[in-house]
């Protein structure tokens, strides 16, 4: 039973991280129908920025909690800035181009950002300091769930609630939903569509950065390539739940996290990534619209 619970919470933690990244995909897809391939790289850049900030601050003698908060904040700011810039350079000029063009541009951007970090920093795995504090009250349950896992799950839950509130009740949230429904109509009723798209990228990138800091601190090492696999898994999660749907992305991410966790725990750990991809292929064959997605008919 303990083993089951351990796998359960392990999967929940993984799923929470995937959810943070998957939201960025799903929000961008919901608005401009583009798979933002560079999103995984934004997450990687968030983790790198946090590592650099944490390194500098720890040499200056800050304590762990203030480092965690400052590093996360700066990572969020920088990731958002990168997300904003990527949209302006690689996607905005292609708004009216054929569908394949922005997709290829996104792949190019992803390769570019990976190699930019590779050349400017290093190709080695860098040790990431454990920024998440250990709680004493968690000690009796340590064999099931660690403090980092608790922090990750709680943070994700809080972020989800905040995001839902933002989208349901604020002005920009309403503008986003309007743009997602119909871009032209939103423009007609006075929504600044360009700004809404930029904001979507900024919010999605900020979430990815939070995910990046949490997972890097949990796993303990990062390199320039972490964004690729994380990006694909998060995209899988978004598709699983029904791309474009925000609760769907969270649900999909959790399902994916559990699938991986139980499959590696009970079947084989060599094929962790294979399980994720197989799940993706199966979902797309049997339910292309995803768990919570609605099937749309294509018109000429």
């Amino acid at each position: 039973m303990d083993y089951f619970l351990e796998l359960f919470f392990g999967g929940l933690t993984k799923g929470s991280i995937y959810a943070l990244i998957a939201l960025g995909y799903t929000m961008v897809y919901g608005i401009i129908e583009l798979i933002n391939f560079a999103h995984g790289e934004i997450y990687m850049i968030g983790a790198f920025t946090a590592l650099i900030v944490a390194g500098v601050l720890s040499f200056l003698g800050f304590n762990t909690v203030s480092i965690l908060i400052l590093a996360t904040l700066i990572a969020v700011v920088y990731s958002s800035a990168y997300g904003y810039t990527v949209e302006k350079i690689a996607y905005k000029p292609l708004r009216n181009a054929p569908r394949l063009s922005p997709l290829i541009s996104a792949i190019g951007m992803s390769i570019f950002l990976q190699n930019y970090v590779l050349l400017a920093q290093t190709s080695d795995f860098l040790p990431f300091p454990n920024l998440i504090p250990e709680f004493e009250f968690m000690e009796p349950y340590y064999h099931i769930m660690g403090s980092s896992e608790l922090v990750i799950i709680l943070t994700t839950a809080v972020v989800m609630v905040l995001l839902t509130l933002l989208i349901k009740f604020t002005r920009i949230g309403k503008a986003m939903r309007a743009t997602a429904q119909n871009k032209k109509m939103a423009m007609l009723v006075g929504v600044n569509v360009d700004r809404v798209i930029s904001m979507t990228f900024v919010i999605g990138s900020a979430l990815a950065a939070i995910g990046g800091v949490l997972i890097a601190s949990y796993v303990g090492q990062i390199n320039f390539y972490i964004g690729f696999i994380a990006g694909i898994k998060a995209f899988t999660a978004a598709v699983l739940g029904g791309i474009g749907s925000i609760p769907g992305a969270v649900l999909g991410a959790l399902v994916l996290g559990w699938t991986e966790s139980f499959a590696t725990g009970y079947v084989s750990s060599d094929y962790e990534d294979v399980f994720a991809f197989c799940l993706l292929v199966l979902i797309l064959i049997f339910r292309p619209a995803g768990i919570l997605g609605r099937a749309t008919t294509q018109k000429v």
Partner: peptide, 8 residues
């Protein structure tokens, strides 16, 4: 790096 940039 150049591959990526040139694709964009």
């Amino acid at each position: 790096l150049i591959f990526g940039a040139s694709m964009v």
